[in-house]
Simulated assay, not measured.
Amino acid sequence: MRTQNLRVLEGRFTLRWGAEVRTAAADSHLLALVLGPDGGAAMLRDDMAEDGWAALWNGDDAHDPEATGMLSAVVAPLAARELPVWTAASYDGDSVDE
Rank of each mutant, 00 (worst) to 15 (best):
residue 1 M to A: 13
residue 1 M to G: 08
residue 2 R to P: 02
residue 4 Q to C: 07
residue 4 Q to Y: 02
residue 7 R to T: 09
residue 9 L to R: 09
residue 9 L to F: 02
residue 9 L to P: 00
residue 10 E to C: 08
residue 10 E to H: 08
residue 10 E to R: 09
residue 12 R to K: 14
residue 13 F to D: 04
residue 14 T to I: 08
residue 15 L to V: 04
residue 15 L to W: 05
residue 15 L to E: 03
residue 16 R to S: 02
residue 17 W to G: 05
residue 20 E to P: 03
residue 20 E to A: 11
residue 21 V to N: 01
residue 22 R to N: 12
residue 23 T to R: 12
residue 24 A to P: 00
residue 25 A to W: 04
residue 26 A to S: 14
residue 27 D to Y: 04
residue 28 S to G: 08
residue 28 S to E: 12
residue 29 H to T: 12
residue 29 H to W: 00
residue 31 L to Y: 05
residue 31 L to W: 01
residue 33 L to W: 06
residue 36 G to R: 07
residue 36 G to H: 04
residue 37 P to C: 12
residue 39 G to C: 09
residue 41 A to H: 06
residue 45 R to F: 03
residue 49 A to H: 05
residue 49 A to K: 04
residue 51 D to S: 14
residue 53 W to L: 14
residue 53 W to C: 02
residue 53 W to Y: 09
residue 54 A to H: 14
residue 54 A to R: 11
residue 55 A to V: 13
residue 56 L to W: 00
residue 56 L to T: 01
residue 60 D to C: 07
residue 60 D to F: 02
residue 61 D to T: 12
residue 61 D to H: 09
residue 61 D to K: 07
residue 63 H to P: 01
residue 63 H to S: 10
residue 63 H to W: 05
residue 63 H to D: 02
residue 65 P to A: 14
residue 67 A to F: 11
residue 67 A to S: 15
residue 68 T to K: 11
residue 69 G to R: 11
residue 69 G to F: 01
residue 70 M to V: 07
residue 70 M to F: 04
residue 75 V to Y: 01
residue 75 V to D: 06
residue 75 V to L: 08
residue 76 A to N: 13
residue 78 L to G: 06
residue 79 A to Y: 10
residue 80 A to F: 02
residue 80 A to N: 13
residue 80 A to G: 05
residue 83 L to F: 13
residue 83 L to D: 10
residue 83 L to K: 13
residue 84 P to L: 14
residue 86 W to H: 15
residue 87 T to V: 15
residue 89 A to N: 08
residue 89 A to I: 06
residue 90 S to F: 06
residue 91 Y to P: 02
residue 95 S to C: 14
residue 95 S to K: 10
residue 95 S to W: 10
residue 96 V to Y: 00
residue 97 D to Y: 03
